[in-house]
């Protein structure tokens, strides 16, 4: 009898916490949705109505896709300095090679406002190039050099865009999808 009682009590507790979690999630979702709207609004006001190619919540975090032509210094400065955005930490920059274009993906975080942003900047495959954001976040320095080294993406305005992981004489950019491994040259064959 007492065991049964305990079980039902436990069950009640579980449902209660589940409800709490759901409510929390709803509040959280609302907050990120508002942030996404805010972001879209401010980016459009800075870079033009059609600057944003896509915007959505990706795993409950804002994700925005823009073209390299819209990714300008003023926009980067705004992401960092705008009162309501304050993205002071640039966690990560990654280059991704798709068949028809390349992307530079920025992971932003705001220590003060606890907000996230995944910003994807599209550029062409023939001569991929985006602006360097080292002047706004010094941490971009090596991330950009790495993306240049492994994917051949040019970061306009970077003070020292040289290879960082591979040796200086290396030919090609290994993370490009059409890169052919020189097995003979590497002594693998």
């Amino acid at each position: 009898m007492s065991e049964e009682l305990l079980n039902t009590e436990e069950l009640n507790n579980v449902t209660e916490t589940n409800d709490a979690v759901e409510i929390n999630n709803a509040v959280e979702l609302n907050k990120t949705e508002q942030l996404l709207n805010k972001l879209v609004e401010t980016i459009q006001s800075k870079a033009g109505e059609d600057a944003i190619e896509d915007s959505k919540l990706n795993f409950n975090r804002p994700m925005i896709v823009i073209d390299a032509s819209a990714w300008q210094h003023e926009l980067a400065a705004m992401l960092r300095d705008n009162e309501q955005l304050q993205f002071d930490l640039l966690s990560c920059i990654s280059g991704v090679d798709y068949d028809d274009h390349m992307e530079v993906v920025y992971q932003f975080y705001s220590y003060t406002l606890d907000n996230y942003l995944m910003l994807k900047v599209k550029t062409n495959r023939q001569s991929p190039s985006v602006i360097s954001v080292k002047q706004f976040w010094n941490t971009a320095d090596w991330h950009e050099r790495e993306a240049y080294d492994l994917l051949g993406i040019n970061f306009e305005g970077h003070p020292n865009l040289t290879r960082i992981l591979l040796q200086d004489e290396w030919v090609g950019h290994p993370l490009r999808k059409d890169y052919v491994v020189d097995k003979e040259g590497l002594g693998l064959d």
Binding site: C92, S94, V96, Q107, N138, T139, D141, W142
Partner: peptide, 27 residues
Amino acid sequence: GIHLVSDGTTKPYRVKLRRPSFVNIEI
């Protein structure tokens, strides 16, 4: 951190590893 791009196949399309030591010695 890991930035993972999947194209729906059995192998990852792109994996970017954000290694803390790499970033920490930039300064």
